[in-house]
Simulated scan of single mutants.
Amino acid sequence: MDGNELVLVCPSEDMEEEVLRYKEEHFACGDMQVHGSGGLAYYDRYDEWLNRIRSMRRNTTDNPVQTSTFFSRRVTDGKLIGCIKIHHTLTDELESGGHIAYGIRPSERGKGYGRQQLLLCLEYARQLQMKQVIIACDRDNAASAKTAMSCGGRLVKEFEEDGIPKQHYLIEV
């Protein structure tokens, strides 16, 4: 992989059909959620989800933390490969979840796309003038931990949340 195979794109109205196929692939493989999507799995209507993530991009009284959500699109064929979101800041409530959450569609896992997608998001974090980001993952999610470490992440904390062992990886941006 040459490192320029993916680009980040903001979800839009014209992506509805391909986003719903992306979501359905996760469900068909037994995934209970669509990591990095800002809750796509919990919405029956695409337009409602799209409005939610668009509202999260703005800092308001109801939304004190701006969050940007992107899909990664493969340049060669336009296929949606993954989804990634970044909280521009963290509140105490969001700290356990970290700044960045990501996922790759089941049929494209294990091909190095997670690392490439995270590197693109870290470039976006630099544009936001963030100095560091925290990535949280379940302790038994070796693929997510490997992705974070491949981008310079170092394990800084282990903890439990709702009885599930978790880890925090810190990446200097």
Rank of each mutant, 00 (worst) to 15 (best):
R45V: 14
L118K: 00
D138K: 08
Q116Y: 04
Q66C: 14
T67E: 12
R105F: 00
E25P: 07
Q33M: 06
H26S: 04
H26L: 07
A142W: 08
H88D: 09
R105C: 11
N4L: 08
E93Q: 12
K131C: 10
L119T: 13
V9P: 02
Y42G: 15
G163N: 08
L20W: 06
D14H: 09
R105G: 12
S37F: 03
V34Q: 03
A136M: 10
R73G: 02
A41L: 05
G78V: 07
Y22E: 01
K131D: 12
M15E: 04
K23M: 07
R45I: 11
F159P: 02
Q167I: 02
H99T: 10
T147F: 00
R21K: 14
R45W: 06
G114Q: 02
G39V: 05
A148L: 08
G110E: 06
Y43H: 14
E95W: 03
K146N: 14
C137S: 02
F159D: 13
T147C: 13
T89M: 07
T76I: 07
V173P: 03
K166W: 08
Q116R: 14
S144D: 00
V156G: 08
E172K: 11
I171C: 01
R109K: 15
A143L: 01
S72R: 00
Y22M: 01
A143C: 04
S12Q: 12
M130I: 10
S55H: 11
P64H: 11
D31G: 01
E93K: 14
H99G: 13
Q167R: 11
G98W: 04
C83R: 03
S96G: 07
E158G: 09
E17L: 10
T89R: 12
E123I: 06
L120Q: 07
G103V: 01
L8D: 05
N63C: 11
